[in-house]
Design a protein around this nucleic acid. Structure first.
Ligand SMILES: [Mn+2]
Ligand SMILES: [Mn+2]
Ligand SMILES: [Mn+2]
Ligand SMILES: [Mn+2]
Lengths: 218, 218
DNA sequence: ATTAATTTTTAGTCTTATCTAAAATAATAA
DNA sequence: TTATTATTTTAGATAAGACTAAAAATTAAT
């Protein structure tokens, strides 16, 4: 169907275009994929030939319905594999991404549907990201960055923005996990740090952390 | 480490060289891989550069200890994935090979060792083939082709020689499964067919079938 | 021992995916 | 509005992996 390279470019374009009306720029894609703009232009033409994206020279690229569906299916596989690795193979949430990057390219509809069933049809991956269904649809849950919460507001930890292993390991060390209830006890204007209560402990966390943790308001 | 192509060539050379003293010929490899002899020569040079095989022009190729270890690890992954697909994802034994061909190339030592544990450290794959351990060692069990059994001999079905899906589906249809006890009731000299007793049923099977079914003598 | 047939290697071409350097276009500033 | 800067595309090169056709080496047959 599609090559490994095509799938990886498409997935990047899908993610970059998610919250934007306009096209995704060549440079944006190049930066995300750690490649050169000229390589991106080449690949965009191929994706366009296969009707995965619409391409107008100098005007960036937009994903088609077909492309979005295809990309969502890759994301579905990626996230289901991540759940599998954590739930069944004792991986921690900071170890799964790299392996899922490989596994997401395995071609077998039966494999992925059976995996889905084995895992009990999960709706989120280990980082709180939604898992698209077979049709590519998903239902992102209402969530806000911890940094945007007001004094006294309470909520539940439901996801991370940054899922680098250094951030995830930091959360582990601080015993901050998805599902934990969090309450904002204080906000420090000087450095925008936040005092929180989490699982009977009080903690002060930096603005950078607060900007990478998603909370579902209670 | 190694490319997909290198891994696939190496695996083929490993399998072809298993029961032979002399080197594996270019044509043999080309035939097995459905490619051209010239492509094989090219790849052999690359494998040789990486010390996976020893290559002497016109003299065929022999796998090195390093190559054998590398190949055995790929085979280990292939067979463990096959067990996983059958045991955990409701695949039948004639559906697993293609998917395992993809999965065997996933790079993650932790993944494969955890998978091994999840499956209870199986020693055989769904077709009765031995699963190498982490060091690449395995213990092939004593087995004979059904066709070589004498009149009255009894044994247990422990493996298949041909694992094409048409043969496996034929066995399913005849309700011949690994683990079944088989007794030779008669041998027909005219067409070399064999009368067997299996799970209280009597059956006549062709020589072709008998030459693809492995039996462990009781 | 020559000759003929087969096998294997080499030489050269093609496709995919990448890169660098240069040219073209678009965006921004003066 | 023109000049400067930034972005994007094109042109040309390279490497991996595959192919065809031709040359070379080996093996088999006379
Ligand atoms: Mn991930
Ligand atoms: Mn990927
Ligand atoms: Mn197999
Ligand atoms: Mn393979």
């Amino acid at each position: 169907m599609f090559t490994l390279s095509e799938e990886n470019y498409l997935k990047t374009i899908y993610h970059l275009g998610l919250n934007s009306e306009i096209g995704v720029s060549t440079n944006e894609i190049a930066k995300k994929m750690q490649t050169k703009a000229s390589s991106v232009t080449d690949m965009i033409k191929k994706l366009s030939d296969k009707n995965l994206v619409v391409y107008k020279k100098y005007k960036g690229v937009r994903i088609t319905d077909f492309g979005r569906n295809t990309a969502a299916n890759i994301v579905r596989k990626h996230r289901l594999w991540e759940v599998f690795l954590v739930e069944k193979l004792n991986f921690s949430w900071d170890e799964v991404h790299e392996v899922a990057e490989q596994l997401e390219h395995i071609k077998s509809p039966k494999l992925i549907n059976e995996l889905d069933a084995l895992l009990g049809f999960p709706k989120q991956d280990p980082h709180g990201d939604p898992i698209p269904d077979k049709e590519g649809n998903y239902y992102p849950l209402e969530k806000k960055l911890l940094a945007t919460l007001g004094l006294g507001e309470k909520g539940i930890c439901v996801g991370v923005n940054d899922s680098s292993s250094s951030f995830l390991q930091f959360l582990d060390k601080q015993k901050i996990a998805l599902g934990n209830e969090i309450k904002v006890l204080g906000k420090e204007p000087f450095d925008d740090s936040i005092q929180i209560q989490i699982a009977n402990r009080e903690l002060s966390i930096s603005n950078k952390i607060a900007n990478n943790l998603y909370i579902k308001i209670l």
